[in-house]
Amino acid sequence: MQRLDPNASISTTQEAKQYLEFLKDKKVFPYMIDAYFFAAAYAMNRDVEVEPVSGLKTLAQNISFVDSDVFLALDAAVKAICKRKGKPEPKDNKEVANIVIQYAEAGLKLLKARWEGKIKSQIQNDICKIIVNNE
């Protein structure tokens, strides 16, 4: 199973980065990368259709501070998704990262619409609902 490289950089589109900054500034998530991976997980969980993204800029040079279990869960999800969709497994960690990025971008778009007009505490309560009630 190919793994994300914690020492590699992660990139986002400008639009996604703006929203990540917003979530960080509002202290919904402690770091932008946390929100980014949550968005990816959200999209993976909902089996959202994704497509390649372009115009990426570096979000973080090093993401080794992210919890290792989060990496593992994402790696496993990428592997499982490829298998479910009958696609070949990623050959290296870059391909894994590319798939995560596609889901993160798609997930962020959905979350942005879902959290429109909500304040920090409302968003955090909604995260509970997303996870506990699968809403």
């Binding site: 199973m1 919904v28 998530f29 991976f37 496993a76």
Partner: peptide
């Protein structure tokens, strides 16, 4: 919150495990 992706991905994790 930093671990929030994990519960969303548990299905995949189980599958791969």
């Amino acid at each position: 919150l930093r671990k929030a992706p994990i519960p969303l991905l548990l299905g995949f994790v189980k599958e791969v495990a």
